[in-house]
Design a protein around this nucleic acid. Sequence first.
DNA 1: CAAAAACATAAACAAATGTTATCGTTTGGC
DNA 2: GCCAAACGATAACATTTGTTTATGTTTTTG
Lengths: 189, 189
Amino acid sequence: MEQIKQAIRQMISVTDAELEYFLESCRTELFSRKSYLAEANKVPDEIFFINKGIIRTTIDNKSGKENTLHFALENQFIADYSHFILGQPALYNLIAIEETEAVVIPRKSIEWGYQNMTEGDKLGRTIAEFYFIYQDNRIKNLYARSPKERYDEIEQVFPNIHNRVPQHMIASYLGITPVHLSRLKKEDR
Amino acid sequence: MEQIKQAIRQMISVTDAELEYFLESCRTELFSRKSYLAEANKVPDEIFFINKGIIRTTIDNKSGKENTLHFALENQFIADYSHFILGQPALYNLIAIEETEAVVIPRKSIEWGYQNMTEGDKLGRTIAEFYFIYQDNRIKNLYARSPKERYDEIEQVFPNIHNRVPQHMIASYLGITPVHLSRLKKEDR
DNA sequence: CAAAAACATAAACAAATGTTATCGTTTGGC
DNA sequence: GCCAAACGATAACATTTGTTTATGTTTTTG
C-alpha cells in the first residue's frame, strides 16, 4: 500500500491515522492478463489504483466491436468514474492488458474519506481536476490534431506504451482502424 | 446574483454570510455579440457564470481556422478551466454568441471559498465532477457515434441550440465541416 | 433603409479513412 | 516445445469527409 499512500500524500495533507483507516477497507488484488476489473452494465462500486501493470478502458459499440478509450498505468486511479459518481450501470469495461496488481477501493471508503478526512473533499476535487485536465487535453487533440499527430505524441501521455500494448489497441485509442495506423506508419518511411 | 446563489445552493450547504462574502468580489458584466470574455495566450484568472446568453469556446488550429469545442448556456460555469487550474496561458477563447450577461468570479474568490467556506472543496469537487461527466460523455460520443448521430442528439445536450447558434458552429462542434453537415442533413430528406 | 457581411446549399473533385481478405510472423498458454 | 490464436503489414476497393467555388438568401450594422 506504499504507492497509494505516497500518491495521496502528494495531493493532500493527511495524518497517518486517517490514511490507515482509509486503507483498512481496501484490498490489493492481482488480475491476470485479459481479466476484467469491472464490467459494463454493472454499477461500479470500486475505484482501482494500479501498483503494477496496465489497464485499458473499452466500450462496446453497437456493431459489437470494442473501442479502447483509455489506458491506465502504474500509480494511476481508474474506474468508470462517471457512472461511479452517478451510481448508474457502467458503460465501460476495465480489462488488464498485462498481469496487474491493483488496490481496490470500495465506495464506502471513498465516502468515509469525504466525510471524515480533514482534506477528503480536497482530495476528491484534486483527482477530479486532474482527470478533467487530462480529458480536456484529449478532446482538444481529437479536434485540433490529425491521427498521425496524435500517434506521434502518444508516448508523452503514456510512456513506453509501444512496448506494452498491441498496436491495434493504440489505433483504437487514436480513433482509427489498425489498417489505417499501419498505413500512416508506412508513409513515414 | 440570484441565479448563481441558487446554483451553488443546489450543490452544497452554505450560509447566507458565506455566500454574501463569496460574491462580494464578483461583478456582473454585459458582453456584446462577438466580444471576448477571455482570450487564448492569457492566463485565465476568472470563471464566468452565465445569467443570460450563450458562449462558445474556441481554439485556433494551426492553419488559422477556428474550432468550436464547446457551448455554454444559462446557469452554467465556463472558463478555460484546465489552464485556470494550472495557472498557465489559456488555449481557448471564450466568445459571446448572443449578448451575454455573466457573473465574473475572480481567482481570489475561488481560493477564498476553498479555504473559508465549510463545503468549499466539496463545491469545487462537485463542479469538477460535473464537467468530468460531461467530458466523458463527449469523448464517448466522439468514439462511438457517427457525426450524424451526434448531430441528432445535440439538442439533448444543448436545448434549442438550433435556434440560437449558426449551423457552421454546430458543425465545428461536431468535428465536421459546414459543407459536410449540410450534406448529412440533405440525406435525411 | 441600404450596403456589406454572414450564412446555407450545392456540385465537382480530392484526400482521408474504412472494409475485407490474405499472408507470414510472433506470441502466449498448455 | 508445440500449436492455436493474435498480430502487423499489405493490397484492392468502397465510403466518408474535406476543399474549392459559386450562388442565392438572410442577417447585421452603420
